[in-house]
Design a protein around this nucleic acid. Structure first.
Lengths: 154, 154
DNA sequence: TATTGTTATACTCTATAACTATA
DNA sequence: TATAGTTATAGAGTATAACAATA
């Protein structure tokens, strides 16, 4: 039983698709969230922040993290504080602009993230295991167009 | 800028699709949430609860709401309390099992919901306006299979 | 014993707004 | 003035666990 139970015959296909998307993302996200907590003692938001840093050897300004994670700045401060306390990231000043603090993975944080990322990737792959590869690509393309229109309307 | 910024060439298509699904649902959900609050002074969770009740003239047991909304029972009690305070729903005993309380829209709640549902449906249709109808159906079908596998693995 | 719903509690995530420091 | 980040706060949403009433 899920969100779609409320639908009736008059509802447009757009609403059917929307509720189905929500159900799918909620089911998958809940599982990922629970496993991150059980196996690594970390929340999804903190994991996501570390994921953004993986490819940035010199770290990222907090304003960049705010944009990428689509949350307001105050939240980045809080998440960063927690990760600093755990020793997983550090704040580093940026030469040339003393307002900016770059958040940067520590060697410890990088090791931790590697291990989590392997598991996380496997969970995601497993979740989509029954979606044929061609459909995977097709979904990705169609949702790409949807994303663009959403971001324009912000 | 969004969640996908963290991807690199080694990442599998499943992860690419997953992050794109998350971005899309978050963008749409944030907009719906903001509009429900601004235009109707209601939260998404309360709206969703009322939506589940629309087709149930005799109401639904709180346990059914818990399953459909995929949240634990305590939350249903809280949401119901708030909607009762607003006069939008009532609790009704169920003949034959005195443990069960059915949550039921009041005439006022039903009127309120009708108005909100019209607006909500228009927002969703608008969000998917640039997705061709054939792709709408295709997405719905593919995600149906995904949903089934997720619910089996719970 | 199992199920329904309530209560109490705590945590995560988020936004907003006022603030400081720097550009 | 504008931008980067911090702080304080509040509200939404959620889960857990102990509990009472009923089956």
């Amino acid at each position: 039983m899920d969100l779609e139970a409320r639908l009736h015959s008059e509802h447009p296909n757009e609403l059917r698709l929307w509720l189905r998307m929500l159900t799918c993302t909620q089911l998958i996200e809940q599982r990922i969230r629970a496993r991150l907590r059980e196996q690594f003692g970390i929340t999804l938001a903190r994991f996501d922040l570390m994921a953004q840093l993986e490819r940035a050897p010199d770290g990222l300004p907090m304003s960049a993290l705010s944009k990428r994670m689509m949350v307001t700045g105050g939240n980045i401060t809080g998440l960063t504080d927690e990760l600093v306390k755990e020793g997983s990231v550090v704040r580093r000043p940026l030469a040339g602009d003393r307002r900016v603090h770059c958040v940067c993975l520590t060697p410890k944080g990088r090791r931790e993230f590697k291990a989590m990322a392997v598991a996380h990737e496997a969970w995601v792959v497993e979740s989509f295991a029954h979606v044929p590869s061609a459909q995977l690509t097709n979904l990705h393309r169609v949702l790409g167009a949807l994303k663009t229109t959403q971001q324009e309307n912000r």
